[in-house]
Amino acid sequence: MRDFSYLRAASVEEAINAAALPATMLLAGGTTLLDLAKCGVADPERVVDISHLTGLDTIRVDGEGAFIGALAKMSRVAVDAAIQQQFPAVSEALWQAASAQIRNMASIGGNLLQRTRCAYFRDPATFPACNKRSPGSGCSALEGVTRNHAVLGGSDACIATYPGDLAVALTAFDAVVHLGERSVAIDDFFLLPGSTPNREHAMQPGEMITAITIPTSVAARHSTFIKVRDRQSYEFAAASAAVGIAFEADGKTISDIRVALGGVATKPWRARGVEDALRGRAFEPEAVKQASRLAIEGAIDHGANHYKIELAPRVVERAILKTGAMA
């Protein structure tokens, strides 16, 4: 960590203007930024504190959907009664994320932008090679310890897992990320690493997240989030799944199904193959099992993370069965 200048932004405009300057980072709850600064990964020249901006922490749910301000705290969104009712998977994803202390500090905008837990990324002094940190330097993980690395969406340049939970639920339900004037569908907001793993999202310099919206849907109302990990609390997902289901009037035929995976891919991973296989079909355990296997289509393991290929379909299957039983 080195000296940086600190600006407490008085308005969104001021924050955006300041954020357009090079080597500038926004500070919300700081639970990612400070952590990475201590590791020597984040090294901003300017820090623009947006945590005191007013009007950015609204949580509103109406017939259209949910509107969540970028500065709303994780813990507040998790306990919001309307969110719990209309988007249970979103609330559950937040409850199972991080720790109570972090959830009380952390903002929804910051949460989307949390960085990977790849150990090589987090230790620049020992591992100079990391394409995400310094493009072209190589990837220390490919030949290293890969237990937590992605099996989906990786490239020769980077196989770092997107670690967050909330974005997985948001991806299942077609949330939209609002960057002031502009808005981007969440699936387009997060980028695959390809040859530029340093670019993780579609934001341009000088943009900031102002809000997230999630459209209402029957599937979102009948949804669940399952997170699997060795430690029962305060651990990132080994694999997770957000699932929502709507049935036809017969109560059996699946009219709409949403499936997204976490903990196994380089970005929040929408499993459209699973959805396509089940949409229009009768809800039936064997069909669910077969379809769930499609969740890991195209998966590539790197040894120690092979178990994720076994685990992910089982998590998807369990989540679909659980949601189907509730709907």
Binding site: V228, R229, L311, R314
Partner: peptide, 8 residues
């Protein structure tokens, strides 16, 4: 857990 292998 029979599917997940998690021990509690």
């Amino acid at each position: 857990d029979v599917d997940f292998g998690t021990v509690r």
